[in-house]
Design a protein around this nucleic acid. Structure first.
Ligand SMILES: [Zn+2]
Ligand SMILES: [Zn+2]
Ligand SMILES: [Zn+2]
Ligand SMILES: [Zn+2]
Lengths: 151, 151
DNA sequence: TAACGAAACGTTATAAAATAACGCGCATGT
DNA sequence: ACATGCGCGTTATTTTATAACGTTTCGTTA
């Protein structure tokens, strides 16, 4: 994410939290900013390392508490298969992320495919299941890494 | 899974491995059996505890190695969002599991919804992504726990 | 059958991810 | 000022997963 995009995300996060009566504290803002600034998903402990620059002596609960808050408010996503987190670029409307994860280069991109969302919804409904959080992570090789090797 | 179903799964696993020149050793068979016999997904360490009855002094690598083998051969699935494992009841044809995970009762059921599979395939293809392993875990409330509270 | 190489396994140690527990201090509203 | 709740610091611990290395077992071949 570019500096400007990050600034925009922080701005929107601010508004969103204010509207909900939630407090986007310094630490939470820092974690969100670091995740947005990273070109790859960060584990809680990588995040912890990067926080050392901004916050004095952070410990695991520091980062996990911030992440819990940001997850609750839909400002970040957790990639279960990687034990890592990414900032969400589109937090304004609630959405469940769908992710393409390249196992070659580590690149992750977020989808919001309505056909996928609908089929999941339908599959759940058919089983009488009330879905609260779909986890969709497609692991494979991205277009760049596939490099025309496959037709 | 009933005793008979477990026996059938073990039988088929045996054939499948023989056909591939893979060795379904005692430990691997034990892990598969324990997973099938459990009424809920088991973490590696729960599995480790249950192995103590059958195998002398098992250590973490013991169970993780068996799990790696069984995962490779599609005999078990890993639930990424739970850090837990389940036996697969339909290992004969390769398939990527789709799971409904009830956060109330912990019950997990495996789906194989072709509409979901197709939409995922299509979404990946549209992004030039070559998918090797889809992770689909729908977290919510099962029909039983929902208990007619919601229409 | 004896020798060989690969795969499986035992064992110890360590890394990585996540949470528990407890008290302090600050923001907010009365 | 006071009470209440939330956020946070801090320490310790639990849970999940892997590294490393030597030994055994198994199938193959000389
Ligand atoms: Zn998002
Ligand atoms: Zn890639
Ligand atoms: Zn299956
Ligand atoms: Zn349930």
């Amino acid at each position: 994410m570019t500096e400007q995009e990050i600034a925009a995300v922080l701005e929107r996060a601010e508004h969103l939290c204010r509207g909900r009566g939630a407090r986007l504290t310094q630490q939470r803002r820092t974690v969100l900013r670091l995740l947005c600034a990273s070109d790859k998903p960060l584990s809680a402990y990588e995040l912890l390392d990067r926080m050392r620059g901004c916050i004095k002596n952070p410990a695991p609960p520091t980062v996990y508490r911030a992440l819990d808050f940001l997850l609750e408010h839909g400002l970040v996503h957790k990639l279960e298969s990687l034990h890592a987190f990414v900032g969400c670029a589109h937090p304004e409307h609630t959405h469940a992320g769908q992710f393409l994860i390249c196992s070659d280069c580590g690149d992750v991109s977020e989808l919001e495919d309505s056909a996928v969302a609908k089929s999941l919804q339908a599959a759940g409904k058919a089983a009488g299941f009330r879905m609260t959080r779909p986890v969709v992570e497609l692991i494979g090789t991205c277009a760049h890494c596939d490099g025309g090797k496959q037709t």
